[in-house]
Simulated scan of single mutants.
Amino acid sequence: MPITSFKALACPLDGSPLHCSGSACRCASGHSFDIASQGYINLLPVQHKRSRDPGDSREMVTARGRFLTAGSYQPIAAAVNQAVLADLPADATISCLDAGCGEGYYLRQLAAAAKDEQTLALLGLDISKWAVLSAAKQDRRITWVVGSNANLPVLPGTLDRVLCLFGFPVYPEFARVLKPGGRLVQVDAGPVHLRELREIIYPSLKPERTAEMPTPAGFRRLPAETLRFSIDLASAGQIADLLAMTPHLYRTKAEGRAAAAALTALSLGVDVRLTCFERGQIGKRPGPEHIFNTEHPGRATLGKR
């Protein structure tokens, strides 16, 4: 499938279109942003930063890259690909933003899953320069940007899809950049996600929250999926990588980190919620949700809202 550069970038300072040529991107007001030698663009002005080096550290990015490349979360990527490509013509040009792309695993999986007739204009954005640097080194066909979900450097109404996978959604910004009828694909941890690990690193667990998230303003909710499957980590290194790529690394105390470091193998359950929201009021009314058990392909349980 053809991968084309994403053309609808906006200046993070005044919102006007950015035009990229050579080694820089410029807007009509004269603001200029260098294209790094590795191929990414830093569109996070210093006045928009809350710290000197925001986002995931180089170590977290490296750990997540190793873990995801090993394939443990591939069922999540497959479900995301299906949600992104659903209801699109086979010969469509699809513009898609991964808002909080990390080192680019899910966009690379999407690029591999698209049909040959489809053209993808893919944009990966993350506030961590280390994440974007890693992503750009692995696939230069995709447009990679250092930026913030709070101020997306994207022109209004230009995206068919927005991904927010285990990230920090900013719904007004997502609504602004999506086309009418465009979709937000959101993945969040479910109530029993990685429970076996959490039981080891925390003295006690907080009560599980099961309430459905409210539908954001400007969107309508589509049928959702709950994905549950098991993974087996067979080394201390894999366990350390999983812990390092989650917020639990910084939430747990030294005793919990030590307990995790002592493990040499761990079986645990993945529980994630994939929710799609459509921009505007276009299309049919959503039906019942489907809960797919990926340990038994083809078996589904229907549940009313």
Rank of each mutant, 00 (worst) to 15 (best):
I3Q: 11
I3N: 08
T4S: 10
T4H: 11
F6D: 05
F6A: 02
K7A: 15
K7E: 14
P12V: 07
D14Q: 09
L18Y: 10
C20K: 13
A28M: 05
S29R: 11
H31E: 07
H31S: 07
S32C: 15
A36S: 10
S37G: 02
N42C: 15
L43M: 09
L43F: 15
L44Q: 02
V46Q: 13
K49C: 06
A63D: 04
G65I: 01
L68A: 01
G71T: 04
Y73V: 01
Y73Q: 08
Q74N: 09
A77Y: 04
N81C: 08
N81M: 00
V84A: 06
V84N: 04
L85D: 02
A86I: 02
A86T: 05
D87Y: 08
D87K: 07
L88K: 12
A90S: 08
A90K: 05
A92Q: 04
C96H: 00
L97F: 05
L97I: 03
A99H: 00
E103F: 03
E103C: 02
E103Y: 03
Y105E: 02
Y106N: 09
L107V: 07
L107M: 06
Q109E: 13
L110E: 03
A113E: 01
A114G: 04
K115L: 12
D116A: 14
Q118L: 14
T119F: 15
T119Q: 14
A121M: 14
L125A: 00
I127S: 05
S128Q: 00
K129Y: 00
K129I: 00
W130F: 08
V132E: 10
S134H: 13
Q138H: 14
T143C: 07
T143F: 02
S148L: 15
V154W: 00
G157L: 05
T158Q: 14
L159A: 11
L159S: 09
L165Q: 04
L165V: 10
G167S: 13
G167V: 01
G167M: 00
F168P: 04
V170N: 13
V170W: 03
P172R: 01
F174E: 10
A175I: 03
A175N: 10
L178G: 12
R183D: 15
L184V: 01
A189D: 13
A189Q: 06
V192C: 12
V192K: 12
L194M: 15
R195E: 11
R198I: 06
R198E: 08
E199C: 09
I200T: 12
I200A: 03
Y202G: 09
K206S: 12
E208M: 12
R209A: 11
R209M: 08
M213Y: 14
P216M: 10
R220M: 12
R220E: 10
P223W: 14
P223R: 12
R228Q: 12
F229Q: 09
Q238G: 06
D241Q: 07
L243M: 12
L243G: 00
M245F: 07
P247V: 15
K253C: 04
K253A: 06
G256S: 07
A258I: 05
A258T: 05
A259M: 12
A262L: 02
A262T: 02
A265Y: 06
S267F: 11
V272Y: 07
T275E: 10
G283E: 06
K284T: 09
P288F: 14
I291D: 00
P297C: 06
G298A: 10
A300N: 15
T301N: 02
T301P: 06
L302T: 13
